[in-house]
C-alpha cells in the first residue's frame, strides 16, 4: 500500500511542477502529458522524467509533463481517459491498446540497429539439454507472464515444436515454471544453476558476466518481436504528434543521444511501421488478448 502512496505522491509532485511551468498559459494552450511505466526503481524514473520532459518541452515548444503509472494497464487506462497523451509501452500492451482504445504506436525503440528482436531459450553449456524436448519435466524461468520476449514468444517455440498445446498451461510440460521478475533475474537463475533453462530476450545474455556468457548457449529462437513502443492516444492533435515525433527522432543524432538514457536506454528510435506488429498481433489473438 505504501508503494502506491509513494507513486501517487510522485504523480502529484510532477503535476504540480508542470503546472508551475504551465502557469502563464491558458487552459486552451496545447501540452503533452506522458505516462511512464516503471521497470525498476520508480524514484530513479522520476529523475529521468524530469530530464526528458525538460528536453521535450524545449524541442516541441509546448509544455511536456510526465507521471509514473503503477503498470501497463494503468498507462493504457490513462491513454483511454485522456489523462495521458503518450506513453512508453511494451509491444504487447501497445497492440492491446491499439485494438481496444484505438491508440496508435508511433515510435519503436532500436537496439543493435533493429526495431525488432527475438526471444530465446537459453541453457547452460554443461547441461545435457540439446533441444526443447529435453526440457520436459525440467525447470524454466521466464521474465514475466505478460512479457513478449520474456515469456509469450519463447513459449511459442515449444508450441511450434508440438511440445505444448496452444494456450495450454506450460506447467503440464515443465517440472516448474518461474517468473523471475525480469530478463536479468531469469537468465541469472539459469546461469547460477537454480533452473535448467531461461526464456528471455535474445540480448539477455549480455546481462551476465563475461565468464557466465561463455557458460551458456541458446537452443531455440522465436520469430521477430517488435521492440518497445511509444504510443499516442486516439485523437491526439496531429501537429502535437508530429512535433513530438520529430523531437524524439532527434535523439538519434549524436548531440542528443545523451537523452536516450532517460527513456529506458535504447540505441535510438524509428517511426513505427504497422507491419512490424503482424507476428505479435497473431500471438495476441491466440492468447485472447485481442479479438
Amino acid at each position: 500500500m505504501k508503494r502506491r502512496n509513494i507513486i501517487r505522491s510522485a504523480v502529484l509532485a510532477f503535476t504540480a511542477a508542470a503546472l508551475l511551468v504551465a502557469q502563464p498559459l491558458t487552459a486552451a494552450e496545447p501540452s503533452i502529458t506522458m505516462a511512464f511505466v516503471p521497470q525498476e526503481n520508480p524514484d530513479k524514473l522520476l529523475g529521468d522524467i524530469e530530464q526528458i520532459t525538460a528536453y521535450l518541452s524545449k524541442e516541441t515548444g509546448v509544455p511536456v509533463k510526465g507521471f509514473v503509472t503503477s503498470d501497463h494497464a494503468a498507462a493504457v487506462e490513462a491513454l483511454r481517459n485522456g489523462d495521458a497523451d503518450i506513453s512508453f509501452m511494451g509491444a504487447l500492451p501497445s497492440v492491446i491498446a491499439k485494438h481496444r482504445i484505438g491508440a496508435e504506436p508511433i515510435l519503436l525503440e532500436v537496439y543493435r540497429g533493429k526495431p525488432t528482436y527475438r526471444g530465446r531459450v537459453f541453457v547452460r553449456r554443461d547441461s545435457a539439454i540439446e533441444t526443447l524436448a529435453d526440457l520436459k519435466g525440467k525447470t524454466i524461468a521466464f521474465a514475466d507472464p505478460i512479457s513478449e520476449s520474456g515469456y509469450l514468444f519463447p513459449l511459442k517455440t515449444f508450441v511450434d515444436e508440438g511440445l505444448l498445446e496452444k494456450g495450454a498451461d506450460p506447467k503440464g510440460f515443465f517440472g516448474e515454471v518461474y517468473f523471475a521478475g525480469g530478463y536479468q533475474q531469469a537468465i541469472q537463475a539459469m546461469a547460477n544453476g537454480l533452473v535448467d533453462a531461461a526464456g528471455v530476450s535474445q540480448y539477455a545474455d549480455l546481462l551476465l558476466t563475461p565468464d557466465q556468457q561463455a557458460e551458456i548457449r541458446w537452443i531455440a529462437e522465436s520469430e521477430q518481436i517488435p521492440s518497445h513502443t511509444v504510443i499516442a492516444r486516439k485523437g491526439l492533435d496531429d501537429d502535437l504528434k508530429t512535433r513530438f515525433i520529430a523531437a524524439m527522432m532527434k535523439l538519434n543524432e549524436p548531440d542528443y543521444r545523451v537523452y536516450l538514457k532517460y527513456v529506458y536506454g535504447p540505441d535510438g528510435y524509428v517511426v513505427a511501421d504497422n507491419s512490424a506488429f503482424t507476428n505479435l498481433e497473431a500471438l495476441a489473438r491466440d492468447y485472447g488478448f485481442i479479438d
Partner: peptide, 26 residues
C-alpha cells in the same frame, strides 16, 4: 544460496500478475 535463490524465484512468481486489462492475470 541455492535455496535462497529458489525462494526469490518463488517470491517473484507468487506475487501474481495483473495481466493487461485483466487478460493474462494470475
Amino acid at each position: 544460496a541455492r535455496a535462497i535463490g529458489r525462494a526469490w524465484l518463488t517470491l517473484t512468481t507468487t506475487t501474481g500478475s495483473s495481466g493487461v486489462f485483466g487478460i493474462g492475470s494470475q
